[in-house]
Design a protein around this nucleic acid. Structure first.
Length: 407
DNA sequence: TCTGGGGTCCTAGGACCC
DNA sequence: TCTGGGGTCCTAGGACCC
């Protein structure tokens, strides 16, 4: 461990989407509100604390929620509003330190080690954050403070909603002894069950296992697990704009109804390819591996990928590869979900176009993107695109899975 | 009662080359 | 005559996070 102790904040909005809706429409304040995804197959993505008290959980269908709590108010998700609020949040955070790492639409890590003195201590920073968020955005946040990201994240969950929890150096041992290992970010259900079989229940139990012992069971992640077990985490807060490049870009869509028709599937793949292609180009990448994901009506989900020899970036090329993969799948059942993703990415200036037709194609693609960037998505696009599909999709919290409920 | 969407990282096995 | 071993690339799938 290092001598200079860091002060890391993890800040997590409370019931983010629901709170934003309650702020936008004060009539919803104090009521059970559930925000749902759009379309026939949308599920609940967040709910207010009032709704949670009635047993409403993320992942339920609106029907299930209604049955459970007839007074629940269902509000369709308005992603643009949440993105806007999220951007405001980040700019508030950045007034307290430049070292801000957005972790999702409603969470961030802040390294405030360097700004403690300026603000006169951690309490002033916490109070300042809460006050600004409350007065400017009308929502609440839970804040965790600790010497590293792992523990800060753990801390922010300890006193929800609208809470603060500070883990000082001296408290660490005690907390590790008391806290179940599954509370750690990175230990999911499977890992927790596996650790339980080894007699590991608390974080401290994990810390008591030796690295070689962990290596036998978990291989390469042994060292990391050990560090987690002793509450250590050397990873830095990565300042916004200094992130590593994306590794993949993709979109998927659950269809309004299950379909079998190849021409409909073709249309959806084309649209998804266009969405992927636009983001790929906007972010300045090309890629050479295309992955197609299918989910059948029985929920069986699988993927097929293809790596080609050249880096591509046009929506058309992405579509050709993804439809080619689809065509190679022999046994097709009614399709519930389709996904297209591209990976094996490189930053764009790769080479100049070799031939005239390549240059023309590139110019056309650029012109279309410029128009779409200026006037909104799909102002211009091929006749095959289905414009309904593309609103931004960014959905947060914990997925709730039907089949997890049996224990 | 039916089960959203966007990512990262890791594993294991096969193809292929030297 | 019975079968090396290392390295790289690729595919499929799963765990995990939000």
């Amino acid at each position: 461990m290092s001598d200079n102790i860091r002060t890391i904040i993890h800040i997590d909005m409370d019931a983010f989407f629901a709170s934003v809706e309650q702020k936008a429409n004060p009539k919803l304040k104090g009521l059970p509100v559930a925000v749902c995804g759009k379309g026939k197959r949308g599920v609940i993505v967040t709910s207010s604390y009032e709704a949670r008290e009635m047993g409403i959980e993320t992942g339920m269908t609106p029907n299930m929620a209604k049955r459970l709590c007839p007074e629940v108010i269902l509000v369709p998700a308005d992603i643009e509003k949440y993105i806007y609020t999220s951007a405001k949040l980040i700019s508030i955070f950045e007034e307290f330190t430049p070292v801000v790492e957005p972790y999702s639409i409603d969470e961030a890590f802040l390294d405030v080690t360097g700004s403690l003195k300026y603000f006169g201590g951690i309490e002033n920073i916490i109070n300042g954050l809460k006050k600004r968020i409350g007065s400017e955005l009308g929502i609440t946040a839970s804040i965790g403070v600790a010497p590293n990201k792992l523990l800060a994240k753990l801390a922010s969950g300890m006193n929800k909603p609208d809470g603060v929890f500070i883990i000082n150096q001296g408290d660490i041992k005690d907390i590790l002894r008391k806290t179940p290992v599954g509370k750690l970010c990175g230990i999911g259900k499977k890992m927790e069950a596996y650790l339980r079989d080894m007699g590991v229940r608390t974080i401290a139990d994990l810390g008591s296992l030796s690295v070689p012992e962990l290596k036998r069971r978990f291989g390469i992640i042994a060292q990391k697990l050990h560090l987690m077990g002793i509450g250590d985490d050397p990873s830095p807060v990565i300042q916004r704009g200094k992130e590593t490049d994306a590794k993949s870009i993709g979109h998927s869509l659950t269809l309004e109804r299950d379909i079998l028709s190849v021409s409909e599937i073709r249309g959806i793949l084309f649209t998804l390819s266009e969405m992927v292609g636009r983001r790929l180009r906007r972010d300045g990448f090309r890629g050479r591996t295309v992955t197609l994901t299918l989910r059948y009506s029985d929920f069986y989900t699988f993927s097929r990928r293809k790596t080609i020899s050249t880096y591509i970036y046009s929506s058309d090329d992405i579509f050709k590869v993804s439809f080619g993969i689809f065509s190679s799948i022999r046994y097709i059942k009614p399709v519930r979900l389709l996904g297209v993703a591209i990976s094996n990415l490189v930053k764009t200036p790769v080479s100049l176009p070799l031939f005239e037709w390549m240059r023309k194609k590139e110019n056309l693609t650029k012109a279309i993107d410029e128009i779409n960037n200026r006037y909104g998505d799909f102002t211009i696009s091929s006749a095959e695109v289905i414009p309904e599909i593309h609103k931004p999709h960014i959905i947060p919290p914990k997925p709730f899975r039907m089949h997890d409920r049996n224990f």
